[in-house]
């Protein structure tokens, strides 16, 4: 064994532990996990306004939402009068919709989950699928940027072969304080299809949170949906039993 080789071995041996520490520090999967956890918190209770913009009309609806853990969400519309009472419940992979007009709880079949939710640019799947991205995708940091004096990780997330998603890849921009500031969705051909951008990051219930979420289809600049959080409370201690089909129709 030549001296050169011994030296190389030593070098690798010395550097490897550092390498591990270095990569653990910014493991992209952990960044995504932290960001999702930060966004969802343990539980949340919010009142928000959703504005759906289309070329020839724009409508705005107000809803109240409750989330708990990574798998429970309930959304109920409270204004305008025409839409009030309509509610959607998501538990794990199941989604139900309630309409006061027919006074019925309807389970949304999986095939319908990519349909538009309440006429917006969000789909039913968007209500809960957020944390699937942690396990069902492979993540890679492709660059870092700076925004508002904070470091931003640009993470490319590619779904595993087995993941039940329509996207070819997603690009997440996550600030070092775990706020997702942009989320781009690409199709299988690598074309950017829709893009979620957050605005007005401000202190809400004691933590920095994006007040406004803006989602738009890239091809149609005149079609977008915006969710504006009016109030949000974290750790609201909501009982598990609240997230049931029974409470869908009973919400007052």
């Amino acid at each position: 064994m030549s001296f050169k080789r011994v030296f190389l071995f030593l070098l690798v041996g010395i550097l490897t532990p550092f390498g591990v520490v270095w990569s653990e520090n910014i493991n992209p999967k952990e960044i995504v996990r932290n960001a999702i956890n930060y966004w969802r918190d343990d539980s949340s209770h919010a009142v928000a306004t959703m504005v759906v913009h289309r070329p020839n009309w724009e409508r705005s609806m107000t809803f109240e939402s409750w989330t708990k853990g990574s798998n429970k969400a309930l959304v109920k519309f409270i204004a305008p009068v025409k839409d009030s009472g309509n509610a959607t419940l998501s538990i794990d992979d199941d989604t139900w919709s309630y309409s006061p007009k027919i006074n019925k709880v309807i389970r949304i079949p999986p095939s319908m989950k990519s349909q538009s939710w309440m006429g917006s640019d969000f789909s039913y799947r968007d209500l809960t699928k957020a944390d699937d991205i942690i396990e069902d995708y492979t993540h890679k940091i492709i660059s870092t940027e700076t925004s508002d004096l904070k470091k931003v990780y640009v993470i490319e997330s590619i779904p595993l072969e087995s993941a039940p998603v329509v996207w070819g890849k997603e690009i997440l921009k996550i600030r070092e304080d775990w706020i997702i500031i942009q989320h781009d969705f690409y199709d299988q051909d690598g074309q950017l299809i829709k893009s979620l951008v957050v605005k007005n990051i401000s202190k809400m219930d004691g933590k920095l949170y994006p007040k406004v979420m803006h989602i738009s289809k890239v091809e149609l600049t005149d079609e977008w949906t915006e969710i504006i959080h009016d109030t949000i409370k974290f750790d609201d201690n909501i009982p598990d039993s609240f997230f049931s089909t029974a409470s869908l129709g009973n919400l007052k």
Binding site: N86, K101, I102, S116, M118, G119
Partner: peptide, 12 residues
């Protein structure tokens, strides 16, 4: 359940 032309909820 569906959506009307102006994005409202159709439930009937």
């Amino acid at each position: 359940m569906s959506q009307s032309v102006d994005g409202g909820v159709v439930a009937t």
